[in-house]
């Protein structure tokens, strides 16, 4: 099958891999108890719905609220209480309000633990492009994306693995203007979970029914297969825990 024909078949085929909800759900598993977290607009916002029970996570929104809660009921609605996407939100008990200087000191001063963002492109070094395609007639708009990637401790990306036309978004170098250099830690796509490391991009998990080769074909750089390693590690852990149980 030619590449073009294959791409068309990808487009027209039914949903394979993880859907948007499942990508958010998978990412949410990695949000640790006690984290301060900033979620980008779009799929990243959904992560909050899926953080496992029993974990207490505080959500930061850069327009000036730490302790962001759910969408408001009609009675709770206040046009002065919104998130960074300018949607109405609520504040949880224990929340705090602050001005933009303090809010971005939390971000730029390395106080926020995790930020989840979308991407247009990610490079093998962890460069991120997610604010502009560089098109001449576009109205450039950046918001807080550059501050978040520069200042937050861990950057998770949730993205479709390829564009709608089947073009790889994970590349040797980003061709779009950068949001930040060497900033991405982990990528959750509809097909897999990939870690950005000094050694290169390591695929650590596959969506159900997806093979390593299938992901590799849709990725612009050579991936390191971390699945074998992971299985070994998992087996070791099982052995260890059995050991412990015996003592």
């Amino acid at each position: 099958m030619s590449q073009v024909a294959e791409r068309q078949s990808i487009e027209t085929s039914k949903q394979i891999g993880w859907n948007r909800e499942q990508m958010a759900q998978r990412c949410a598993q990695d949000i640790e108890d006690g984290s301060y977290v900033n979620l980008g607009i779009g799929i990243p916002e959904k992560v909050a719905q899926y953080v496992p029970d029993g974990r207490e996570v505080i959500y930061h929104t850069e327009n000036g609220l730490l302790g962001m809660g759910d969408s408001p009921s009609d009675e709770e609605l206040d046009a002065d209480l919104i998130n960074a996407g300018k949607k109405a939100v609520t504040a949880i008990p224990g929340a705090s309000y602050f001005h933009h200087g303090d809010s971005f000191a939390m971000i730029r001063g390395n106080h926020i633990d995790v930020c989840v963002l979308g991407a247009m492109q990610v490079s093998m070094k962890g460069d991120l492009a997610n604010w502009s395609t560089g098109a001449v007639d576009a109205i450039p708009a950046v918001g807080g994306a550059m501050d978040l990637v520069a200042g937050v401790k861990t950057i998770y990306i949730i993205t479709q693995h390829t564009t709608k036309n089947g073009v790889a978004k994970i590349l040797p170098e980003c061709t779009f203007p950068l949001t930040g250099q060497k900033v991405v830690n982990r990528i959750y796509s509809d097909l897999s979970v990939i870690d950005v490391t000094e050694k290169g991009l390591i695929l650590i998990e596959l969506a159900p029914g997806i093979s390593f080769d299938y992901v590799q074909e849709r990725t612009g750089v050579a991936l390191i297969n971390g699945l074998a390693q992971k299985n070994e590690l998992a087996n070791k852990n099982i052995v260890n825990s059995t050991d412990k149980a015996q003592h």
């Binding site: 200087g101 971005f104 950046v142 807080g144 550059m146």
Partner: peptide, 21 residues
């Protein structure tokens, strides 16, 4: 902006806040 009638200085949001502070 497209018709060139207004100038834009685009600043990252946190840099904007910090510049003002």
């Amino acid at each position: 902006y497209r018709s060139g009638k207004i100038e834009l200085e685009l600043v990252p949001q946190g840099t904007l806040a910090e510049r003002i502070r």
